[in-house]
Amino acid sequence: MKKKINPYLLAGLIITGFMLLVTIIGVFWTPYVPTAMKYGKFQMPSAAHIFGTDNFGRDIFSRVLKGTATTFSIALLTVSIGAVAGTLIGAVTGYFGGFIDDVLMRLNDALTAFPSFLLALLIVSLVGPGKKYSVVLALGIVFIPSFARVMRTEFASLRGRNFVTQARLMGARNGRILLVHLLPNTIRVLLPALTIGFNNAVLAEASMSFLGIGVTPPDASLGYMLSEAQGMLASGPWYAIFTGLTIVLLVFGVGLIGEGLQAQNRGVD
């Protein structure tokens, strides 16, 4: 049976596809060198600089291209770390319960309470300074608890279901039950959690940059640029506007895909 593709999904795919294209272009080509400071401070958007220039006289469009690539990859990796580790912890704790549950959930709580600022500092001093992936690692770890908690609840509520009991009676091993019977059923929670996680990762990266522990200048991420731009609303409002719009577009696209996939799943159950 053919199904009409959901409009949310379509819009989401188009937007995300576009952002992905921007990301790929940004890796290989930018109209100007994104760190070059020779185009005049705070130039209004024009044909030559369609997003204008910033406080150092750098071309904002080139920086946005590069920044999108950085933010996209940071957010994606962060969510992947958080989701994989979180699902694993959630599955084990939720399904087995008992001692393992207690131990892991205590660690989980400890991690939630652990200041992310300190965690970032810690990781920077462990992996050595100036490494780009230290932000990803720090944020990824920060994201584990929320995934773990949500997935744990889901697994715990599923394990009492009839089909699990039946599977067990039929001699299926725990691993198989978790992977084949339970995991697909958690998609309904995992999917929104993933898109929300992506969204959160973009915001968290911005907050980290705001606190001065994100990417290292002169590289740019959208969050870093936005926290920089917020102090220049008077002299170059376009800086914040274009960076902000790009962030919104990025998050929006992924959000719509999530929304669409969900709608698509309706009736498939």
Partner: peptide, 24 residues
């Protein structure tokens, strides 16, 4: 930090590749 950002550009002109490392 801003000064460092500018120096990256100025030193690149003579082939010096600068990494800025902000620390707390």
């Amino acid at each position: 930090v801003n000064t460092a950002t500018v120096l990256v550009e100025l030193l690149r002109e003579v082939g010096i590749n600068v990494t800025v490392q902000p620390v707390d």
